[in-house]
Design a protein around this nucleic acid. Structure first.
Lengths: 266, 266
DNA sequence: CGAAGGGTTGAGCCCCTTCAATCTTAGTGG
DNA sequence: CCACTAAGATTGAAGGGGCTCAACCCTTCG
């Protein structure tokens, strides 16, 4: 099942690859697979001691490389592993009876997929890679154990991380249920920018997303066709600019106003 | 602000009142304000030791009685308290720019409102009482402390409770975004029945809800007018029966089929 | 060069909304 | 006990936002 190469953080082979001379790859996808990115993420919500950091970095994990469109987990899988995203984007989805897809959340470097599932004990939705992606698989037990051993720091940070994800989903409910398509899409674009900037991955006014318009439509609860019209309209109004998979927000304030976006709940 | 009477669970007076001879009331709404109902709720997801139970029951709290429609917390309130529902129903809502309301979740006896907010440190939505309601206010600090002191049991159970709420919200995203009104409403009715039965409060095929049709519409992301038509249609089809605020599901299987309901994610 | 995936555009329709009115029920005070 | 009131439920009619169906275009990749 875990097709990919299995490494434990301490193997020599891993360190060897650190010598590859490709600055780009070094930034996007460090040749040394390390949970450093997770530490940084957790530290943002809760102060960690050196001991905490060491404990996280010492977690045993397996790196799995995923291609665009590949399943990370499937609904009804046993919740045996949490998937820590080392690099790349992924999303959670649910399929309804008629076959329609809804995307529940979009994640990237430092996010933990299935954290809630491994605490609850069952996977309740699919997770897929949007683009080439590296995830570290950590056993559910190890996660629960480290949280229980460092309850006031790591435990709290993990709890917070999982709740922050949940809060975002709540925002999506409101967005999808009570805003028209124009507002909804503007809100979503603001949200991506806001989160990317917060995570130090991009400028909120200018970022590239690997999502296709179909993906975005499935986030917004729209059809791809209608989403396209909305995007075009926003572009025509001079609020945003699209090229390939890059989004430029001409005026943050205007788009936030259109999108009824307040960054307060994030 | 906290109008009500303050009691700590360990007082003698409490033990005395446990002798009241009314088995029904003892189950539904113990005359003793006690966190017993919370203990029972948490125990359902995680085994607790006697020490855990005692620790929970010893939590200092303030009982607050609420009338129908009263605010429990407001968006942007400081997250000073978690609100444990001792009896009654409540819901969380968010208001969008245009003034439309969306209900994010519906809670009742044993549920903890604002648990996630008090871990995250900020309240991000309103919470209101649907009907006469008693809530125990426990300080955020006490909650975090008890979780940190009993990480593998109480901490885990609280974590789970908050995540279970979040998972439900995820289900609502899908429901609202990708199902038509008929399916959506049927799903919601199944969900309420399922959860009520799980919590030992009603039969899933026959329960009364204090929600008005307007509330239900705001759960489903519909207008109250359209919701009414959908309900009437479901009734005309012989799937459900409505009288006052009571719902009878004629055939669970049929309604679940119509509503694309699978209880797996709960 | 062909194929495939994704983006773009048009036309028509339908589900749900909006606006408006009426009916029913529950609660209140005389 | 009943009239009065307000909240909620119900029904009708009309309009529009987003969907469906059906093309066509553009880019990327083998």
């Amino acid at each position: 099942v875990l097709g990919a190469h299995v490494r434990s953080e301490s193997t020599f082979a891993v360190d060897c690859r650190a010598s590859v001379l490709d600055p780009w790859r070094l930034i996007i996808e460090p040749p040394t697979a390390s949970l450093e990115v997770i530490v940084r993420k957790l530290e943002r919500s809760c102060a960690l001691t050196d001991a905490d950091r060491r404990a996280i970095l010492a977690l045993p994990f397996v790196v799995r490389s995923l291609e665009r469109g590949q399943y990370i987990t499937r609904e009804a899988d046993p919740a045996a592993y949490a998937h820590l995203i080392l690099s790349g984007w992924a999303y959670r989805q649910r399929i309804v009876g008629k076959g329609a897809r809804q995307i529940l959340s979009v994640h990237w470097d430092g996010d933990i997929l299935n954290l809630s599932n491994c605490v609850l004990g069952a996977v309740d939705c699919d997770a897929l890679a949007i683009m080439k992606c590296e995830v570290a698989m950590v056993s559910t037990l190890a996660v629960k154990q480290i949280a229980a051993e460092h309850p006031a720091t790591i435990g709290l940070a993990l709890w917070r991380a999982s709740l922050a994800d949940g809060a975002l989903v709540g925002e999506w409910v409101t967005n999808i249920a009570r805003r028209d398509s124009r507002t909804r899409v503007a809100h979503l674009l603001c949200e991506f920018g806001f989160r990317l900037e917060r995570d130090g991955l991009a400028d909120r006014n200018w970022y590239s997303i690997p999502l296709t318009q179909e993906h975005i439509a499935d986030c917004a609860g729209l059809t791809p066709i209608h989403l396209n019209r909305v995007l075009k309209a926003l572009e025509r109004e001079g609020l945003i600019q699209l090229s390939r998979r890059e989004i430029t927000i001409i005026s943050w304030q205007s788009l936030a106003a259109v999108g009824d976006f307040r960054g307060n709940c994030l």
